[in-house]
């Protein structure tokens, strides 16, 4: 029997099921570590270091409380002398024979990550789009060599230039500043942004912006009103890559930031040092750290898909 309900160009039911199975297995394998770290965030400190590890446990917010606070250990007498705790988290901390000494630095580091991550992403995409447009549309002497030169900035690991950058930044006062980190991440991202976006801009027929110029707009106006909206797919893809890099970057952040502009990646491991092996706080910190990139990617993914169907219709 031939199944006439599907077109001969479609794959058969069996191979589709097999493909789905492989994808599910792959997803499970890659998701296990992430799931584990998220679960760890909801364990109590004792539960997080039990051996063998507990798969079923009583959930606790201790990790999150520890993440956002600093605490000091106190004697039983001291704790009993205190007035009763006012909040659930004070109660939780006291049950561990500690009192809250103050907020931790996590919130500030997290905010730094957001400022630097989004700042660098925006700047990379913006400058990248301008450069890509110029490379795509204008006659530029030595265009191919320039494009290669831009790419060549990524031919060594960025950290290879860490020392000169460290010295330079100290000299010009950009060390441990938000602006310094935004500029640095933008520089690293820019070559990728230019190359990716140029590919997308090449795909947009010139007629659109020419029509806009005939309609009375300047080239700049046509670029913002016509070209950019049509490069949405490319911009979304580029922004995701830039965001992931800037958000996760660790080496430069360790080297160049300390107090003022330190981002979350170098901060989270330092939690271990404060008051023992606090894996639940690390789990909590990592979970919170994952959220923005995830939201960012999911939001932009819609644009990615929309952009692709867009081009399929007709140029």
């Amino acid at each position: 029997m031939v199944d006439t309900s599907r077109s001969p160009t479609e794959s058969s039911g069996f191979s589709r099921k097999l493909a789905a199975l492989i994808i599910i297995i792959y997803a499970v394998v890659t998701l296990i570590p992430i799931t584990w770290i998220i679960l760890t965030g909801f364990k109590s400190v004792t539960s997080s270091i039990t051996y063998p590890p507990e798969v079923f446990f009583e959930p606790s917010l201790e990790g999150y409380v520890n993440l956002f606070t600093t605490r000091t250990r106190q004697s039983q007498e001291y704790l009993e002398a205190l007035p009763p705790p006012e909040t659930w988290y004070e109660e939780l901390v006291r049950s561990r024979e500690m009192v809250i000494a103050g907020p931790s630095k996590f919130f500030g580091r997290y905010a730094n990550s957001l400022i630097i991550g989004f700042g660098a992403t925006f700047l990379s995409v913006f400058l990248g789009a301008l450069a890509a447009y110029a490379f795509s549309r204008f006659k530029i002497p030595l265009k191919d060599d320039l494009m290669f030169f831009i790419l060549s900035t990524r031919m060594f690991p960025p950290i290879a230039v860490a020392v000169p950058i460290f010295i330079m930044y100290r000299k010009i006062g950009l060390g441990d500043t938000h602006l310094g980190m935004i500029i640095l991440y933008t520089v690293v991202n820019l070559s990728l942004a230019v190359w990716l976006l140029k590919g997308f801009m090449d795909e947009i027929p010139r007629e659109y912006e020419e029509a806009a110029m005939i309609d009375g707009y300047t080239r700049m106006g046509a670029f913002f009103k016509i070209v950019l909206p049509q490069a949405t797919t490319g911009i979304a893809a580029t922004a995701i890559f830039c965001m992931i890099f800037s958000w996760n970057e660790y080496a430069f952040a360790v080297l160049l930031t300390q107090f003022n502009a330190q981002t979350a990646p170098p901060f989270i491991p330092t939690i271990i040092g404060e008051g023992g092996q606090d894996w639940s706080a690390i789990g909590a910190g990592t979970t919170l750290f994952l959220i923005p990139v995830m939201i960012f990617t999911v939001v932009l993914r819609k644009h990615l898909l929309r952009g692709i169907t867009f081009g399929a219709v007709r140029k």
């Binding site: 029509a211 806009a212 005939i214 009375g216 707009y217 300047t218 909206p229 867009f310 140029k315």
Partner: peptide
């Protein structure tokens, strides 16, 4: 003179209607 200053309209072969 720039295209935008000539006050001339152009109908392109593939129309170039703004797709967005």
């Amino acid at each position: 003179l720039r295209a935008s200053q000539r006050d001339i309209a152009f109908v392109f072969q593939l129309f170039a209607l703004y797709p967005h």
